[in-house]
């Protein structure tokens, strides 16, 4: 039996939203509970937006909007 999986689409292309490094909730959505950037095979983000997203997440971390590490890591 073939399992069909819905094709993932890029959240930013579909909704035509720009990636803002100050949008804490959006950045949270694309990091896992260890604070790591989720791969595009998981989120479905296109290559162009994934690169922008990685930059935005790194800026968000620097500005202490999102953590580098989870609370319990140290």
């Amino acid at each position: 039996m073939t399992a069909y999986r819905r094709k993932k689409t890029c959240h930013f292309c579909e909704n035509k939203v720009a990636i803002d490094y100050k949008d804490q909730h959006m950045l949270d959505r694309f990091t896992n509970d260890r604070g790591k950037i989720l791969p595009r095979r998981v989120t479905g983000t296109c290559a162009s937006h994934q690169r922008q997203l990685a930059t935005a997440i790194k800026r968000g971390r620097f500005l202490a909007l999102i953590p580098y590490l989870p609370d319990h890591a140290l």
Binding site: G35, K58, R59, F62, A64, P67, Y68, L69, P70, D71, A73, L74
Partner: peptide
């Protein structure tokens, strides 16, 4: 809100 993460003194020079 949850407590902030405790990080080491290593900070990026960004």
């Amino acid at each position: 809100p949850s407590e902030p993460a405790v990080t080491s003194a290593k900070e990026p020079a960004e």
